[in-house]
Amino acid sequence: MSQHVVPPSVYVKVFGGLTILMILTWVMAFVNLGVFNPVVAVTIAILKALLIVLFFMNVKYSSRLTWVFVAGGFFWLLILFFMVMPDYLSRDWQAPVQPW
């Protein structure tokens, strides 16, 4: 699995992709997209992370087990995000408690 040798040309291409994405995220930050600014920023960051994980870290050429644990790690993080945020999103929905 780790015996797979990735040729340098792939690494250089990936690096090129990362550079383009970095410039893109920089430019987009200076354009007013309203609420979509953070969405775009995070999407680009995820794309960059994917490039790094798949090619620099060889996951593209790795066993299914590696895929499972890589995906599992990120998925667990989403559990944390998606279970913490509802509390903060819905706290103001309640009518304030009347002191008696």
């Binding site: 667990w76 559990i79 279970m83 509802p86 509390d87 903060y88 999103l89 819905s90 706290r91 929905w93 309640q94």
Partner: peptide, 20 residues
Amino acid sequence: FLVWGHHMFVSTQSTYAGMV
């Protein structure tokens, strides 16, 4: 991993999150 909020029913956690 999905149940921790039951420790926080009375600590100003949102009731709606509490229900989940």
